[in-house]
Simulated assay, not measured.
Amino acid sequence: MITLHALQYSRATRVLWLLADLGQPCNRIDYDRTEAFRAPETLSKVHPLGKSPVIEDNGEMIAESSTILRYLAAKYDDDAHTPPRGTTDFWRHEALFDYVEASLAEVALQAILPAFRGQPVPDDAKTALDTHLDYVAKAIGDGPLLFGGKAMLADIQFSYIVALLARFGLLAGHPKVAAYWDALQQQPGYIAATRSAGPMAPPA
């Protein structure tokens, strides 16, 4: 059985979501955040950078949530969480999947971190975020999710960043992305993961 090292309020919920969709159990080891909202020192004994999520499977240690999601889809021969291979939608999906952490996350955190500290979001950070959220809104299209009504890997990947943006009121002025967040929260895998491990974003 896969062992999942899961930090509270983290990207680990993405992994739990996919496992729930696949009907696969895991041995979950939970880690609470420190008072400074950082990962505890014990996680550095699992991964040199103290990262979460990390999974262990058959002696292999795998980090990075995007890699973990792809690994699990391959391990369990899952083709329900990507559009058909070779199609235009498949490659659009792959681009969106990688966009979340390669491009969106850094921009989003420039707004999330000041909001988390109770500080005003700098104008340049808000402008950059608005540009990306407009891009996400176009990607959603007719919705409710990126490729219709069923969550794909890219939707699962988006969920954590969108959860944080919603938590700190940063989706104001972006109704399509706000509706997308509402639709994500209605997905069975999301519901199962958050019931099991708690919310993605910290409470108010």
Rank of each mutant, 00 (worst) to 15 (best):
H81L: 12
C26E: 12
G198R: 13
P48V: 11
R38S: 07
V177F: 00
P199S: 14
F90Y: 15
P122S: 02
I55Q: 04
R70W: 00
L146N: 00
I191A: 13
G173T: 08
E101V: 11
T34R: 10
D89P: 03
Y180D: 07
L18N: 06
I55C: 06
R92Y: 08
K51M: 09
D77Y: 08
D77E: 15
D89R: 08
Y190D: 08
D134H: 07
D32C: 12
I62L: 13
P122D: 12
A192T: 13
F158A: 05
F158K: 03
P202R: 02
D182P: 08
R38C: 09
E106L: 00
Q185I: 05
G149H: 03
T13G: 13
A12Q: 10
S103F: 05
E106Y: 00
P48C: 06
L43N: 02
K176F: 01
R11I: 05
A172L: 04
D89W: 03
L145H: 05
D124N: 09
L43D: 08
A166W: 11
Y31L: 04
A201S: 13
V100M: 00
I191M: 14
H5L: 08
D30K: 10
L164H: 11
F147W: 04
P175C: 00
G149C: 09
P202A: 09
A204G: 09
Y160T: 15
A179F: 04
I140K: 06
A125K: 00
A178G: 14
A197Q: 14
G141Q: 01
Q119S: 15
A20D: 07
K176T: 05
F158T: 02
D134N: 15
R117C: 06
T34F: 14
Y180T: 08
L104M: 06
D30C: 13
